[in-house]
């Protein structure tokens, strides 16, 4: 199965482990990810806060390249929730609305690009569960996750507002995938609540409370670790646990990893192949030692 792959800016820096583990798991499952040529920033939240049509248009440049590179036959896959939301929303608005189509088309035209609306935007989680399928994933599991109590954290932008492959209020796709890997996903009502996103930079007190609420819910439901599907969620959930502990008198030391890293563990990949070890919660590697080869 061939797909075009849009990594997004975070996956080459702070979220590198997501890129490495996602590509490795995809390869094992015969999902061929071909990187989108010369992709640009999707136009995520802060860009849309400063630009309107300009933001839709830079998002659409990626879609235009994808249509050309994949000959209109390849889906565009991303792993970052925010890239997914931005590209998918642009694609929907482009398809739904004639004026939008005309406006974006004109801006793209200024750069010698054009887009005909022939690309589908997908999240890797969607591809693994719906195209590859849980049966095929299960067949690749060589080391079951042994009832690992995991809280599947979707964050907000993956399942809203298009909600193409899961429920916006209580998504289950990742839970089902983790079950197939041998993990035991816990009930987790905060699973689709926001991590605070960029508010962690601009209004930290507000964002710390949001993350505290997510971590508390995971812990109260017995989770030993959290699985995420977004680089911003990952860093917000793990990097500020110390600040939250001092501010709220809590005692969090909760490993937060990407769902692709857990999938890699279950499929027998090495620690290096899933890029485990870049985490900021100090006990992360030792916690997973039983599951990953050296």
């Amino acid at each position: 199965m061939d797909y075009l792959y849009y990594p997004g800016c975070s996956l080459s820096t702070s979220g590198k482990a997501y890129d490495v583990s996602g590509r490795a798991v995809a390869r094992l499952l015969a999902v061929n990810l071909v990187e989108l040529d010369d992709w640009n920033c999707c136009g995520t939240t802060p860009y849309f806060s400063a630009q309107g049509l300009g933001a839709f248009s830079i998002a659409a440049r990626n879609l235009a390249i994808a249509e050309k590179q994949g000959d209109g036959k390849m889906d565009l896959v991303t792993m970052c929730n925010s890239c997914y939301m931005t590209l998918s929303k642009t694609n929907h608005y482009f398809a739904e609305d004639e004026r939008m189509r005309k406006d974006i088309g004109a801006v793209l035209g200024a750069a010698g690009r054009s887009y005909g609306g022939g690309v589908k935007v997908r999240h890797l989680l969607d591809v693994l569960t719906n195209d590859v399928g849980l049966e095929a994933v299960k067949a690749k599991v060589t080391r079951e996750l042994n009832g690992l109590k995991v809280a599947a954290y979707y964050g907000c932008q993956m399942s809203r507002p298009g909600a193409e492959f899961d429920d916006p209020e209580y998504p289950m796709t990742m839970d089902r995938l983790l079950s197939v890997l041998g993990a035991d996903p816990v009930e987790f009502p905060m699973k689709a609540k926001c991590c605070g996103g960029m508010l962690m930079t601009t209004s930290q007190d507000v964002a710390l409370k949001m993350v505290r609420d997510v971590l508390s819910d995971a812990m109260e439901n017995g989770a030993e670790c959290i699985a995420t599907a977004c680089p911003l969620c990952q860093i917000n959930l793990e990097a500020y646990q110390g600040d939250i502990n001092s501010k709220f008198g809590t005692n969090f030391m909760m490993p937060v990893v990407y769902f692709t890293q857990l999938a890699g563990m279950a499929m027998g990949l090495t620690r290096r192949e899933i890029d485990l070890g870049r985490e900021l919660v100090p006990n992360t590697v030792s916690f997973f030692r039983d599951y990953v080869a050296a």
């Binding site: 820096t13 590198k16 640009n40 630009q51 300009g54 440049r61 200024a110 010698g112 690009r113």
Partner: peptide, 22 residues
């Protein structure tokens, strides 16, 4: 997890042209 040098795309002029048009 931090890269000091920014990544640049080849088509920077395309972005410029699009925004200039806007």
């Amino acid at each position: 997890r931090i890269s000091l040098a920014p990544e640049k795309i080849r088509g920077r002029d395309e972005i410029q042209k699009m925004l200039q048009y806007v």
